[in-house]
Simulated scan of single mutants.
Amino acid sequence: MQPVFGNSGLDQAEAEEDGTALLGYSPQDRSPREEAERRALAQKIGSDWNRISSRIAELFAAGVPENDPRTQQVVDEHYRWLQHFWTPDRDSYLRLAQMYVNQPKFRKRIERRKPNGMAAYLRDAMTAYAWARLR
């Protein structure tokens, strides 16, 4: 799968403001067809993230444990979603999980329009996933 950079369907102005925008090549470096394909894939990636984060928020709000199979299934989707950008191993996935909580800009993005505490829940679910499934 080819890495994708650019607007992933999230609010680009907000992403640029808080420094979480994904940067890529400028549109003039692509043919119109390549740009259309990139936009379609970026839209799908954004939609996938919105679906994944909404599902995590639902599980968190319902009190489903981080290591519950339902939660771990959604975390597996998150892990596969990340492969649009890179393929984390256990250590890098654990670091990303910590970053989601420790870096205010990421915590803000994760918890924007979602319950407070969701970043810590996602971190704990990612940690359980990493130790169970990754090397």
Rank of each mutant, 00 (worst) to 15 (best):
F106Y: 15
E16D: 10
Q72G: 02
R38V: 01
Q72R: 00
A57R: 04
M1F: 11
E77A: 08
N50G: 00
E66F: 07
K44R: 15
R107V: 02
R133H: 15
F5K: 11
E37K: 11
R80L: 11
Q12Y: 12
Y79H: 08
P69G: 09
A36P: 02
Q72C: 02
L122R: 01
S54K: 09
W131V: 09
F5S: 13
E35I: 00
R55E: 12
P69R: 05
L96W: 07
R80K: 11
I56T: 06
Q98N: 13
D124K: 13
F85C: 14
Q83V: 04
V75G: 03
M99D: 11
E66R: 06
A13S: 12
S8A: 15
P3G: 08
Y100C: 05
H84R: 06
A13P: 07
E35R: 07
T127V: 07
K105E: 14
W81H: 11
S31K: 10
A97V: 09
N102G: 11
P27G: 09
V4T: 13
F106S: 06
L122I: 13
D18S: 12
A21P: 02
P3W: 02
M126P: 04
H78F: 15
F106I: 03
R112M: 01
A42V: 02
G19R: 11
W86E: 11
V101D: 10
Y25N: 07
P104M: 05
A13R: 08
S26M: 14
Y129V: 01
P69S: 12
L41E: 15
L22N: 12
S53G: 12
N50P: 00
G63H: 13
R133N: 14
G19N: 08
P115W: 04
H78N: 08
V4E: 08
E111S: 05
E34D: 13
D18W: 15
W86R: 15
Y129T: 03
L41Q: 14
A97H: 02
R70S: 14
